[in-house]
């Protein structure tokens, strides 16, 4: 890993100031995506701005009809949050499925969505629930936030503060784990909140997380696995690598969507 300067601000304003003064800087949350990439010398930031001492960025709370998760909330803390488990267990199951226990002790929701790894789990939950990403500058709808593989709508100097998820009556996540890494080979998040029906897929698309409009349309009649019987999506635009072909990933999208629906409607 190349060397860098290290900063530990205690407020978001300080962190933003450091970002503005160091154009090649990167924000450090849990570090479990960024540090491995730096070890491989695929990233070479001039400075790391550690957010762990910034107050007010952690915690899970219910605010009206939403669940708000602070950007620095560790996966283990989100997964074990009693309020989240009670009002939106489908979302609690997402951080519970990430990596291994030690990784969940460090990794954060803000780091996961800012990185937007095409195989990450949280992007599917954000898109699958219609979350709002709240930064130090504005509110961004999940539909506008994820703009492609490892790419987001975040601008220079913008810092994620929290993510607000509407509490959907029915919501569930199903993933096919890569057996070694635990990453989602394919993961599907489904939800229904009134007339708003969402099916979001991670791991499969060559441009990162995406919604399956054909499935959402079919589920309008009845929000159940049966409504998707025999349905698949085309393999074009799917990832293909040594782990799985595009056809296999496309097939898994249908299978996992039906499994998620069984869970969501149980």
């Amino acid at each position: 890993m190349y060397n860098f300067t290290f900063h530990r601000p205690t407020t978001v304003r300080q962190a933003a100031g450091l970002l503005a003064r160091n154009p090649e800087a990167k924000l450090l949350a849990g570090g479990h995506s960024l540090l491995p990439v730096m070890k491989l010398r695929l990233a070479n930031p001039s400075a790391l701005i550690d957010l762990s001492l910034v107050e007010g960025l952690s915690g899970v709370e219910q605010k009206g009809r939403s669940i708000v998760i602070g950007a620095m909330t560790r996966h283990a803390d989100a997964a074990n949050s009693p309020v989240l488990q009670q009002v939106l267990p489908g979302l609690a199951s997402v951080p519970a499925s990430i990596g291994d226990p030690q990784v969940r002790n460090r990794g954060t929701i803000g780091g996961s969505i800012a990185n937007n790894d095409p195989n990450a789990d949280y992007p599917a939950a954000c898109l699958g629930l219609g979350a709002t990403i709240i930064t130090n500058k504005r509110r961004i709808a999940a539909d506008d936030f994820f703009t492609g593989m490892f790419s987001t709508a975040l601008e220079e100097g913008e810092i994620i503060a929290k993510v607000s998820f509407p509490i959907a009556k029915k919501a569930a996540y199903e993933k096919f784990k890569h057996p070694a890494s635990g990453f989602a080979l394919v993961g599907v998040f489904v939800s229904k909140r009134g007339a708003d029906i969402r099916v979001a897929v991670t791991g499969a698309g060559a441009s990162g997380v995406f919604r399956v409009k054909s499935f959402e349309e079919a589920l309008k009649k009845r929000f159940a696995a049966k409504s998707l019987e025999g349905m698949t999506i085309p393999a074009s635009g799917m990832n293909s690598d040594i782990h799985a072909s595009a056809e296999y990933r496309a097939h898994l999208v249908g299978v996992l969507a039906r499994r998620a629906l069984v869970k969501a409607t149980a």
């Binding site: 530990r8 450090l28 030690q102 002790n105 460090r106």
Partner: peptide
Amino acid sequence: GIAAKSCTTLALQCE
């Protein structure tokens, strides 16, 4: 008090 992988943590993060 919480288990972590020390190969993926900077010494400075443990100040």
